[in-house]
Amino acid sequence: MPSPPTAGPRRAVPAERERVIETRGLTKTYRGGQLAVDGLDLAVPRGSVFGFLGPNGSGKTTTIRMLMGLIEPTAGSARVLGEPMPGAGRRVLPKVGALIEGPALYGFLSGRGNLLRFDAADPTADPRTRAERVGQALERVGLAAAAGKKARAYSLGMKQRLGLAAALLQPRELLVLDEPTNGLDPQGMREIRALVRELAADGTTVFLSSHLLDEIEQVCTHAAVMARGRLVVQGTVADLSATVLGSSGGGRLAVTTPDTADAARVLKEHGVTDLDVTGERVTGNLPVPASAAPPAADGPALDLADLNAALVRAGVRVRGFGAARASLEDVFVQLTGEGFDVAG
């Protein structure tokens, strides 16, 4: 197993074999002519935590199913861990853990029984260590205490955990997690995030589909956005914010003050744009540093402390002062539109 570049050069194009997932013109047309995925070129670098975003019905799950060999592409090709899918499924899939469109369990089996069965389905899994590995996986997702209960009696969150445990039965090179925190309580979400980080630190590449943008932003190094079956953009999370949001990429500043007029004037002098005054609140876009290319993740170039000092020097009484960095949600909405309706 080649050791993954944990903090590799971000902007360098990853070498061919350093891509854990790579698709070329991947297309799926369902019977009836519905185009679910349209010419997808996806490249997931080894060692990344890759967020896969898109509104409902944008083709995320179809893509994941094609990557896992469940669906035959209509056109194009997909390579996973360097080998073609679905052709090399028998060699590739034992090294891949997957949670696809929510957990699916045998209700009449216990949690442990479910894992034993899924493990038995893997011809590369060693039956001698089966019980031990199942126990470890249950422990890892916090289900050890409920392992003997029939899966029928599990709550959605527990089922989700059991699905995750099935993906963790063996050490994996790639984890494909489709909506892993669906149905979990906030505590569970935190645990999953911690687990994802822990796995990524061990060198596992994590391909994470979610529509909880906050969650992606917290754990992902890379992201891709799909809309209506097409790939809109992909890259590092920092790159996305910078290139997509453009002028507002520096973040938004909010000043609370009774002297709104003066404040607005001072801010404008310092290059803050798109100023808006509501009540005692002045908000505006912070300027992006002139060399917009290297997206320094640590905020705008303009020193906020200087800006605050300038306000005070001008006699502005400041009650509150703060900058909000552009979020992935802004990127997402910018790219996929505000509309609530799912794409037909």
Binding site: R65, P94, E101, L105, A121
Partner: peptide, 16 residues
């Protein structure tokens, strides 16, 4: 039940 996809991804192999 949806368990088919997990068996195939395990991978059980379709013919098997």
């Amino acid at each position: 039940a949806g368990t088919l996809r997990y068996l195939l991804v395990a991978p059980a192999g379709r013919t098997r």
